[in-house]
């Protein structure tokens, strides 16, 4: 092994304090530059797994490392700069009064000098096609624009891996396409949690299915979506008329 994988999850199990066991030994390895979709029905443990990746939740068993660095309490600051999580509701992600201050929030927490912060903010907003919006308050933006700004808020931290929770939810078709173009253009490793199977197919060559707290499938997105039995067994459904073998 020459370079460490972007993300290495080994045998991670987790139970919530109320006793509900959400993960039962999850294994996942993502190489640098890969784009992977994490699929699964509601309640499968997808969000729980995502919150483990940057150490918000700590596994009861097993270990996680990001680009070779284990997720431990001592490494938390470095880990949170390496794992950029974009949450589902951009109104949760964008809490500062202006877009620019929000994109600067992460870099400033990393203690970067102000000139570097300004450069990163400009670049990140440019990357998501929102240059020139730095002084706008988030509530003036459309939903699709807010979602793209939310992506910029973690890009400015130069993450090793970008983790998106339901990136296509609530977007109109144009917003969907614009976000897909942005995500495809980014030179980072990508893990995308979604129910939107066509979107997974469009963006991610590889998919992993999580159900009842365990990985039940890990394969190329096209072949995985063509496996009707597998989909049916895990409450995944393709939209009407969508044929994965033809697109």
């Amino acid at each position: 092994m020459s370079t460490a994988p972007s993300l290495l999850v080994e045998d991670v199990a987790f139970a919530y304090p109320d006793g509900h066991q959400a993960l039962f030994g999850v294994d996942l390895r993502i190489e640098p530059g890969e784009r992977v979709a994490l699929l699964g029905p509601n309640g499968a443990g997808k969000t729980t797994l995502v919150l483990h990746l940057n150490g918000i939740l700590r596994p009861g068993r097993g270990s996680i490392s990001v680009a070779g660095l284990p997720v431990t309490k001592q490494n938390l600051r470095e880990i949170r700069s390496r794992v950029g999580i974009v949450f589902q509701d951009p109104d949760d992600q964008l809490f500062m009064p202006t877009v620019g201050e929000d994109v600067a929030f992460g870099p400033r927490n990393l203690g970067l000098p102000e000139a570097e912060v300004a450069a990163r903010v400009a670049t990140a907003l440019e990357q998501v096609g929102m240059g020139g919006y730095a002084d706008r308050p988030p509530h003036h933006l459309s939903f699709g624009q807010r979602r793209r700004v939310a992506v910029a808020t973690v890009l400015s931290m130069h993450p090793e891996i970008l983790v998106l929770d339901e990136p296509s939810s609530n977007l109109d078709p144009a917003g969907r396409r614009e976000l897909a173009e942005v995500l495809e253009s980014l030179p980072v490793t990508l893990l995308m949690v979604t129910h939107d199977l066509p979107y997974a197919m469009q963006l991610c060559p590889r998919s992993v299915v999580l159900d009842a707290g365990a990985v039940v499938a890990d394969a190329g997105t096209r072949e995985l979506l063509a496996d009707q039995q597998l989909l049916a067994a895990h409450r995944l459904e393709l939209p009407y008329g969508f044929d994965p073998t033809r697109t």
Binding site: L51, N54, I56, R77, R80, S81, V83, I85, F87, D92, Q93, F95, E101, A104, F105, G106, R108, N109, L110, E114, T153, V154, M157
Partner: peptide, 17 residues
């Protein structure tokens, strides 16, 4: 929101420009 803040390295103080 707090979760999203923690995920971007929040340590209890809002960074200043």
């Amino acid at each position: 929101v707090h979760l999203a803040m923690l995920s971007r390295g929040y340590t209890g103080r809002l960074p200043r420009g």
